[in-house]
């Protein structure tokens, strides 16, 4: 657990998000300290994706505030650019660029957005491919890789932007069971290296292993937030108990 005196790197205060009339987030507040690992879970439609997507500006919240590393999101145009440079995101569907090789997927951001020289960007990319354990796939196209490999490329692509924070939105939900662990291992390694992470996932074994803080969401609200020990052994709310009972059966 992080000490609460540390200034949080992400401070979400009373954030509400509407899709037309439908309220997807209801006064959500959450603080994440530097280096902290937060795992978010909850039933489908509870607003988990919406929450993480608000943090890097993929969705715009209507009220409340999101402050990332002292920059308030939505304050002005520059704030969005500043925040997305600090925040990496990994998607359920990988979203690799299918027309580019693995190496080109990794170097596009560094070359175009970070203005790195191509050779430097390639060195950087190869280092991160090494780190996600697929250095030999650099010249292949995404569709030639397995799902697990594609997701690891997506993680490496985010890391090449050298973010301070990594967001994961159900990174293993689209994978065949035998590929889930290779992705979780990479994420656990990233966690142990001190990366600040928010992971939406239902992989409770992973959550137990790496989480500093568990968050349970339902109907657009954070219903329960606690350390994993308490979260799994003595969840307070009934909704969370029921959810855990259901999900831990499998």
């Amino acid at each position: 657990m992080q000490s609460s005196t540390v200034e949080p790197i992400i401070r979400i205060s009373d954030v509400s998000k509407y899709f037309d009339d439908f309220q997807a987030l209801k006064d959500v507040s959450l603080e994440v300290a530097l280096g902290e690992r937060v795992v978010v879970c909850g039933p489908s439609g509870s607003g988990k994706s919406t929450l993480v997507r608000c943090i890097n500006g993929l969705e715009h919240h209507q009220s409340g505030s999101i402050v990332v590393d002292d920059v308030e999101l939505g304050a002005n145009r520059e704030s969005l650019a500043a925040i997305r440079a600090k925040v990496g995101m990994v998607f359920q569907q990988f979203n690799l660029f299918p027309h580019l090789t693995v190496l080109e997927n990794l170097t596009l951001g560094p070359v175009r957005a970070r203005k790195m020289a191509k050779s430097d960007a390639e060195d950087l990319a190869r280092r991160y491919l090494e780190r996600v354990r697929i250095p030999e796939q650099a010249d292949k196209y995404p569709r030639q890789l397995s799902g697990g490999q594609q997701q690891r490329v997506a993680i490496a692509r985010s890391l090449c932007m050298e973010p301070k924070i990594m967001l994961f939105d159900e990174p293993t939900s689209a994978l065949d069971p035998e590929m889930i662990n290779e992705v979780l291992d990479v994420m656990a390694e990233l966690a142990s290296s001190g990366m600040t992470m928010i992971c939406v996932t239902h992989e409770m074994g992973f959550a137990r292993r790496v989480a500093d803080k568990m968050v349970f969401m339902d109907h657009g609200e954070i219903v329960e937030m606690s350390a994993p020990e308490t979260f799994f052994s003595a969840p307070e709310s009934q909704r969370c108990q029921e959810f855990l009972a259901k999900i831990l059966q499998h």
Partner: peptide
């Protein structure tokens, strides 16, 4: 083109024109 392609581009800080 899938919306995810824009979101991935956004997350690696590409400008609209890039």
């Amino acid at each position: 083109i899938d919306k995810g392609q824009y979101e991935a581009s956004h997350s690696v800080s590409l400008s609209y024109s890039d």
